[in-house]
């Protein structure tokens, strides 16, 4: 009886096993990377806005506090996007003829709000609340990054649940004194581990409950 398989087929079959493993692994790695990349998550991608508003200029050059515009950040789930009125508080007097600010003046005159494009958009089944984070000593910068260095707004983090949980499991790694919440250049002390634990206790952070599903999902 003639041989069913050619001598080479052993090599081919072994090689094909290796190739299949390599191909499968690459596909999984590639898919994960694409899923995590800014292309999919929007991380670090600056959106085109009705006005190229610069946080860098307003925060870093002018020294405005985050709360000057985001007035409800310490008392509401929503930090608040300022009405055109807030822009005009200064821009009724300075840069009054700048073409870049024409949409602001139009909006103020016609009472039609500017339509900013949302940069941080959580899924609707996440009930995130700004005020609790601010009042428990989580700095703006911890989640939003160095906004004072962003000429155009972008999302510093993925907003993946794994990223939220990282802090919810160990808030002592990220907590800071309440007085430093709006500070963009806060430096954690060397003994952050111990200092953080002290703050967690002092601010009564409910460490046992902040990893419950129902804390963020209802």
């Amino acid at each position: 009886m003639a041989q069913l398989f050619h001598p080479r087929s052993t090599v081919i079959s072994k090689a094909s096993i290796v190739i299949v493993i390599i191909v499968l692994t690459s596909v999984i790695v590639a898919a994960t990377e694409i899923y995590r990349s800014g292309y999919t998550t929007g991380q670090n991608v600056a959106r085109e806005q009705p006005i190229p508003f610069s946080h860098k200029h307003h925060v870093n050059d002018e020294g405005l506090s985050c709360a000057y515009c985001h007035t409800s950040v310490d008392k509401s789930s929503f930090a608040g996007i300022p009405p055109t009125y807030t822009c005009m508080t200064c821009h009724s007097q300075i840069w009054t003829t700048s073409p870049m600010l024409q949409p602001v003046r139009d909006s103020y005159q016609t009472q039609k709000p500017l339509e900013w494009i949302r940069v941080h958009d959580l899924p609707d089944f996440v009930y995130f609340n700004h005020s609790i984070h601010i009042n428990k000593g989580i700095g703006c910068e911890t989640c939003h990054g160095r906004v004072d260095q962003m000429p155009l707004m972008r999302r510093q983090n993925t907003l993946f649940m794994a990223w939220c949980i990282d802090c919810h499991r160990a808030p002592e790694k990220y907590i800071r004194p309440r007085s430093e919440v709006f500070n963009m250049t806060y430096e954690y002390p060397k003994n952050q581990e111990a200092f953080g634990k002290k703050l967690v206790k002092e601010y009564n952070v409910q460490v046992n409950r902040i990893t419950d599903c129902s804390t963020c999902h209802r």
């Binding site: 789930s77 929503f78 608040g80 996007i81 709000p113 339509e115 899924p123 609707d124 089944f125």
Partner: peptide
Amino acid sequence: NLDNQPKYKPLAA
């Protein structure tokens, strides 16, 4: 669609 549910969030259009 659970990501974008038929409800208004603050300042939604």
